[in-house]
Amino acid sequence: MRKTQTLESGKYYHIYNRGINSENLFKENRNHEYFLMLYTKHIDPIAETLAWCLLKNHFHLLVRIKTFEEILKTHKEHEIKKIIPPHQSFGNLFNSYTKAINKGYNRHGALFERPFRRKLIDNDAYLRSVIKYIHYNPVNHGFCDHPIEYPWSSYLTCISEKPTKLKREKVLLLFKNTDNLKTFHDQRENFASLEEFLNL
């Protein structure tokens, strides 16, 4: 049984998981929308999101876990006692989504593999690679030819100027500017070594 890594405050993590027995997590568009709504509820208060992608039977997230002080700033005083460990917030997200899918599709039992996977990202080069890897997942799985064509990832948000909760400024700083981000994503890349490291 693999050791589960603790989510430490102030650090960046690539978080990913898939459906149990490779079952589809997202059967139709409204499932993606509902997952993102739950994500806003459970994860936005405890983490900053730099990239995400939802595919049929798995997902990828790139987050920075907020410090306790940062979390306190987003909570009202009477809510302070409700602050829970970051891994529990993710667990609550997955449990809530599982209950909704089970109810909506007349199924029962676990939906996600457990525990959810997480990898610490400790340098900017690795951050850039993971952002591109996440955005390129739909291309790698044959859903499209370029990340710009896929609606259920953060790539379109990264190159947009519309208001967003995504930490777009941090992402653009990693690539210096939007044009460099686009150029970086236009270049095909073999992610075999990264996938081997992630044990995918």
Score class of each variant (00 low, 15 high):
Gly104Arg: 08
Lys56Met: 10
His58Val: 01
Asn29Leu: 13
Pro151His: 02
Asn92Pro: 08
Ile134Ser: 02
His78Met: 07
Cys144Glu: 00
Pro115Cys: 01
Glu113Trp: 12
Tyr150Ile: 01
His146Ile: 03
His42Lys: 07
His75Ile: 10
Cys158Ser: 12
Ile80Gln: 12
Arg30Ser: 05
Met37Gly: 11
Lys167Ala: 08
Pro151Gln: 02
Glu77Asp: 14
Asp124Ala: 04
His146Glu: 01
Cys144His: 07
Gly104Glu: 15
Glu33Thr: 14
His87Arg: 13
Asn123Gly: 00
Asn140Gln: 12
Leu38Arg: 02
Tyr34Pro: 05
Tyr150Ala: 01
Tyr136Thr: 00
Asp124Thr: 11
Asn137Thr: 01
Met37Gln: 13
His60Val: 04
Lys162Thr: 10
Trp152Gln: 08
Leu166Ala: 07
Trp152Arg: 03
Leu54Pro: 00
Phe90Ala: 00
Thr67Glu: 05
Tyr150His: 09
Tyr150Gln: 04
Leu166Thr: 08
Ile134Thr: 02
Lys81Met: 13
Asn31Arg: 06
Leu61Gln: 03
Phe94Gly: 03
Ala110Ser: 15
Tyr150Val: 10
Pro147Ile: 10
Glu48Lys: 11
Leu120Glu: 09
Leu61His: 02
Arg114Cys: 14
Leu72Ala: 15
Thr49Pro: 02
Ala100Pro: 11
Met37Arg: 14
Val63Met: 09
Asn92Ser: 11
Lys167Arg: 07
Asn106Phe: 12
Asp122His: 09
Lys162Ala: 06
Asn24Cys: 14
Cys144Phe: 05
Ala51Lys: 00
Pro163Ser: 08
Lys132Glu: 07
Lys119Asp: 03
His135Arg: 12
His58Leu: 07
Pro86Leu: 10
His42Val: 10
Ile148Lys: 12
Lys73Val: 05
Leu61Trp: 09
Lys103Arg: 10
His108Arg: 06
Arg64Asp: 01
Leu38Glu: 13
Glu48Gly: 10
Leu38Ile: 05
Gly104Ala: 07
Leu55His: 06
Lys103Phe: 04
Pro115Met: 00
Leu62Gln: 02
Ala110Glu: 13
Phe94Gln: 05
Ala110Ile: 10
Leu50Ser: 02
His141Met: 06
Arg64Gly: 12
Glu149Phe: 00
Leu38His: 04
Thr157Val: 14
Ser154His: 08
Pro86Trp: 00
Asp44Gln: 07
Pro115Arg: 00
Thr49Tyr: 04
Glu77Tyr: 14
His141Ile: 01
Asp44His: 13
Phe94Thr: 07
Glu161Arg: 15
Ile101Val: 05
Asn29Arg: 09
Lys167Leu: 12
Lys132Leu: 06
Asp44Tyr: 02
Trp52Tyr: 14
Glu33Arg: 09
Asn24Glu: 07
Glu169Gln: 08
Leu50Pro: 04
Leu36Tyr: 01
Arg117Ile: 06
Asn57His: 11
Ile101Arg: 06
His135Pro: 09
Ile71Tyr: 10
Leu127Tyr: 04
Ile46Lys: 01
Ile65Val: 09
Arg118His: 07
Glu33Asn: 12
Ser89Gly: 01
Ile65Leu: 09
Leu111Gln: 02
Ser96Asn: 12
Lys165Asp: 14
Lys132His: 06
Val130Thr: 11
His135Asn: 11
Thr164Cys: 09
Leu111Trp: 13
Ser160Leu: 13
Lys66Glu: 12
His78Lys: 13
Leu72Lys: 13
Ser129Met: 13
Lys81Val: 15
Glu113Ile: 08
Leu72Ser: 13
Lys99Leu: 06
Arg118Thr: 01
Thr67Ile: 03
Met37Cys: 14
Lys41Pro: 10
